[in-house]
């Protein structure tokens, strides 16, 4: 089996070149001072201090996290029953449903958002509600598919056993299906929460331009302001928050499984 390990070497080289090396450059920018285009090596933590000491930036961060969090919650609430119901369909219908959920992912996201903008123009809704409709729309298929995969893998015998032991439908769901589908929810969260934190096109188009989000900040500082050092620092802060939250969900996952 050891010979298989060697198979990962080309990939390790690839990530060293195309992921690690570029990220080191971002890290270097984040801890150095001014000068876009060339790296000047004067170490500083000012870029991080500037972000963390400014209430405006913290507010932007909070708004982004809040929108991403609520989007994820809505996706679970709407997506879980859908995934459960799909898993209960006959196998051919399941394949069809999975197909139908996959298809919209192939249409340009911006275009679907334009369409929502047109549709929602006809309704007098709070801009926040419009943003959530657009966000949930974009991410819901990913959540449903992840949870569905987890539920579909479940051993049917466990459920039958639970019924045999006198548990009703509700109890079986709570004690058997739900705990065992947690890994699916977790991977769904990964695919929804992470991109949702940095998304800004949907809030911009549907929120009527009332939101400044962390994705906007990064774009503004890199592109408009040309301040790559600060832009890099914001990117790193965001990456840290995301990695921390992933670590937390993994812990939750583990404790749920242990129970």
């Amino acid at each position: 089996m050891k010979s298989f390990v060697r198979m990962s070497y080309p990939y390790l080289l690839w990530i060293a070149l195309f992921i690690v090396a570029p990220m080191i450059m971002i890290l270097l920018y984040a801890v150095t001072r001014s000068g876009s285009g060339t790296i000047t090596f004067s170490f500083t933590l000012d870029n991080f201090g500037r972000f963390l000491s400014d209430t405006t930036f913290l507010k932007v961060l909070w708004t982004s996290l809040r929108i991403a969090l609520l989007t994820t919650v809505f996706c679970i609430l709407i997506g879980y029953p859908a995934a459960l119901f799909i898993a209960n369909l006959p196998e051919k219908r399941q394949t069809l449903m999975v197909l139908l959920l996959t298809l919209p992912m192939w249409i340009n996201m911006l275009l679907k958002t334009y369409a929502w903008r047109g549709i929602l123009m006809n309704f007098d809704l709070e801009s926040e509600i419009k943003v959530f409709i657009g966000m949930v729309y974009d991410f819901l298929p990913y959540m449903i598919l992840q949870i569905h995969t987890a539920i579909a893998k479940l051993d049917r015998n466990l459920i039958v056993a639970s019924y045999d032991l006198g548990a009703n439908r509700w109890k079986t769901f709570l004690k058997v299906t739900l705990p065992l589908s947690v890994p699916g929810i977790i991977s769904g969260i990964t695919l929804v929460f992470l991109p949702a934190v940095s998304s800004f096109v949907i809030p911009k188009l549907l929120g009527g331009g009332n939101y400044v989000l962390i994705g906007n900040l990064i774009e503004t500082y890199f592109l408009v302001a040309g301040d790559w050092n600060f832009g890099s620092a914001i990117s790193l802060i965001m990456a840290l928050i995301i990695i921390a939250s992933m670590y937390l969900t993994k812990r939750l996952d583990r404790s749920a499984v242990e129970e």
Binding site: P22, I26, S198, G215, I218, F222, W228, S235, I242
Partner: peptide, 10 residues
């Protein structure tokens, strides 16, 4: 994990 713009710029 990274926002696209960070991957892109890097």
């Amino acid at each position: 994990l990274n926002p696209d713009i960070v991957t892109a710029i890097s």
